[in-house]
C-alpha cells in the first residue's frame, strides 16, 4: 500500500484517472490510438481475457495440435494430395500396410531396440558422472564441472555426428592409430554398422540425460547420506536405499527425454548407419519423396511411431515413477 501522503502528492495537479509516467511510455499510453484500442480493451474483464488468452490459444490449437490432427486425418485418406478425377475415401488400409510387410515392420523394431539400448547405456554411463558433479565436487566447482560437460552440446547434431565419423572411419583416427602401433594390418570396418550407430547415438544424446539426473541428485540433502553412514550403511547400501530412490524423478525424465529424442533422430542414422541399420524415420521419409501419392501411408507410419513411442515412455514413467509426470 502506498501511504496517503505520497498518493496525495502524486494526485496533485493532474487528472486522477490518467497515471503519470516518467518516460516516453506516457506518450504511447496517453495517445488516442492506445486509449481507443488496447487501453479500452484492458478496461473490461472480457477484453483482458481476450488480450491474454487469444493469441496463445489460437497458436496452441493451430500449430501445436493442428499438425498432429492433420496427420491423423490424412492417414485415414486413400489419396493425398488429392488429384483431379480421383476420389479420396475413408480407409484404414494405410495402417494395414504396416503390418503386412516385414520390410516396414523391422525398421520400427530396430528403432526401438536402438533407442532403448542407447537410453540404458546412457543412464548407466551418465549416472556416476551426474552423481560426481552433484555430490562429490565442492559447491564452488560444480558449475565449472558441469560447464565442461556442456561444451560438446553446443556443437550441434551434425557436427558431432561428423566428428564420430572422423573417429571411426576406415581412415579415421582409431584405425590409423591402431595401424601405427602395428596391432592391425587392415582397417577394422566400424563405420556404417550397428556399432557406429550406437556409439554415435550415445554420443549425441548423453547430455540430455545429464541435466535431469544432476538436478535430481543435487536436491538430495547430504545429511541423509551422513545419517545413513552414521547408522552403519556402506556406500552400496547408501546408494541403493537413499540416492537411487530419491533420484527417481531425474531418472524418469532423463530416460523419457533421451528415448523420445533418440527415436526421432533422422540425420545421424543416415550418416552413421549402413544398409543393415535402416531405422524407421528413414522408412517414413521414403513416403514423402518421389511419388507423392504415398503421403497417407507415411502419415499412418509416423502416427504408429508416435503412439508406440509415447506409450513406451508412458509405461516406463508409470513403472519407475509410480505417478504421471511431464517430461520436464
Amino acid at each position: 500500500m502506498v501511504s496517503s501522503n505520497t498518493t496525495a502528492g502524486y494526485a496533485a495537479g493532474r487528472d486522477a484517472s490518467v497515471p503519470r509516467y516518467s518516460t516516453g511510455i506516457a506518450k504511447v499510453v496517453n495517445s488516442a490510438l492506445y486509449r481507443h484500442t488496447l487501453g479500452a480493451a484492458v478496461e473490461s474483464r472480457i477484453g483482458r481475457i481476450i488480450l491474454l488468452a487469444g493469441v496463445p490459444l489460437i497458436w496452441l490449437i493451430m500449430l501445436h495440435v493442428g499438425p498432429i490432427y492433420q496427420m491423423l486425418k490424412i492417414s485415414l485418406m486413400s489419396h493425398y494430395p488429392v488429384q483431379p478425377g480421383v476420389e479420396s475415401h475413408f480407409t484404414f488400409d494405410n495402417y494395414a500396410i504396416f503390418f503386412s510387410e516385414s520390410l516396414y515392420f523391422t525398421p520400427l523394431i530396430k528403432s526401438f531396440i536402438f533407442a532403448t539400448a542407447a537410453t540404458a547405456i546412457t543412464l548407466v554411463v551418465v549416472y556416476p558422472v551426474a552423481y560426481y558433479v552433484a555430490k562429490v565436487v565442492k559447491p564452488e566447482g560444480r558449475s565449472k564441472a558441469l560447464l565442461l560437460l556442456l561444451v560438446p552440446f553446443w556443437a550441434g547434431e551434425l557436427i558431432r555426428t561428423f566428428s564420430v565419423i572422423m573417429l571411426l572411419a576406415n581412415r579415421g583416427a582409431v584405425n590409423v592409430l591402431l595401424r601405427e602401433i602395428g596391432l592391425i594390418d587392415r582397417p577394422i570396418p566400424m563405420l556404417y554398422t550397428s556399432f557406429s550407430l550406437g556409439f554415435g547415438l550415445v554420443y549425441l544424446i548423453c547430455l540430455y540425460m545429464l541435466l535431469p539426473l544432476y538436478s535430481a541428485i543435487e536436491k538430495i540433502p547430504s545429511q541423509y547420506l551422513d545419517a545413513a553412514a552414521d547408522l552403519g550403511a556402506g556406500p552400496f547400501t547408501r546408494f541403493r536405499r537413499i540416492i537411487l530412490p530419491l533420484s527417481k524423478d531425474g531418472i524418469v525424465s532423463g530416460c523419457s527425454l533421451v528415448f523420445l529424442t533418440c527415436i526421432g533422430v533422422f540425420a545421424t542414422p543416415m550418416l552413421l548407419g549402413g544398409p543393415n541399420t535402416v531405422l524407421f524415420p528413414e522408412t517414413i521419409s521414403g513416403f514423402f519423396h518421389g511419388a507423392s501419392d504415398k503421403w497417407p501411408v507415411g502419415a499412418a507410419f509416423a502416427l504408429i511411431m508416435l503412439v508406440t513411442a509415447l506409450i513406451t515412455a508412458g509405461i516406463f514413467m508409470r513403472l519407475v515413477g509410480g505417478k504421471k509426470r511431464s517430461a520436464f
Binding site: 500449430l63 501445436h64 493442428g66 499438425p67 498432429i68 492433420q70 496427420m71 490424412i74 523420445l260 529424442t261 527415436i263 526421432g264 533422430v265 533422422f266 524415420p281 517414413i284 521419409s285 514423402f288 503421403w295 507415411g298 502419415a299 509416423a302 511411431m305 508416435l306 513411442a309 509415447l310 517430461a327 520436464f328
Partner: peptide, 16 residues
C-alpha cells in the same frame, strides 16, 4: 512439440 520426436514433428509440419 517438445515431447513429439523430431522426425514426426517435421512430417506433421510438412503435412500441415
Amino acid at each position: 512439440p517438445a515431447v513429439v520426436p523430431g522426425m514426426i514433428s517435421a512430417i506433421s509440419m510438412r503435412i500441415f
